[in-house]
Amino acid sequence: MAELEMRQVYCQTLSELAEKDSRLVILEADLMKSSGTFPFKEKYKERAVECGVAEANMVGIASGLSLQGFIPFAATFGCFASRRAFDQFFISSNYAKLNVKLVGTDPGVAAVFNGGTHMPFEDIGLMRMIPKLVISEPSDPVSLKSIVKLMYEYDGCCYLRMHRQAVDKIYSENEKFELGKSKILKDGKDVTLVSLGAIMLKQTLMAADMLEKDGIKATVIDALSVKPLDADTISDSVKKTGIVVCCENHQIDGGLGISVAKMLLDKQINFKIGYIGINDSFGQVGTLDFLLSQYNLTAKDIYKKVKELCK
């Protein structure tokens, strides 16, 4: 399958939208090169707002632009979008009920050689606590394009957790997405695997193949949306399988898995649950393969977790 850089898709999608809508603006904090948005700046000039290395200020400026009727997409590394600019996004954007789209790139271990300082293992946990915030992590170029468009159309704050490197295409170009909806990629009766983001989806699909060789048939759900959680799709599957393993490139505490567990408990469904995610640890440098292995995020780890739960 052809690999496309996610940041190129991000920039192309925003450029297409900006062509038709002069309200669309982008903001960057000295990471235009990383976010891949230079082509947008070349074309739309002052509608690409360079804020310098000042993420908190960038989020405030985005809020002010929203007050003027613009639709701002502000991007930076996920660690800064969440940890650095949290109060600004919380108060100036969300509490003020404005229309700010915040994009956090390099989710979890994707920050590789930038290491622990740059790894957002807790961005979902922080963002989930913001009332009514829409949170999504697309898993491939097609879902990214669609979710960027959906966020642009949605009147309210959103957090887009975005991998910016090239990843495999999962969906066909005409696939339809909705905010708050997941996708079932594989249907199986024995276990439900809920995956978030491109990196984990690849591992999860590999794990499902490994399990199949042992006669364990897995349903694979690409969560896509963290908030709102697609409770119906996930709970319908767990009602059938009774076992769910949530796979995320994020701290287990505060992440997708905890959100799924609470939802299933609320629905009083009988289930066993396993969590694949970072277990109360800080980040560190390394290749993606090293980091996946170090934090037990590989297909093999998912496979082992399912086997434990199936005993």
Partner: peptide, 14 residues
Amino acid sequence: QGLSAACGMAYGAL
């Protein structure tokens, strides 16, 4: 936080 928002509003006006 206010001055940043004001910057965004002023930028938007321009």
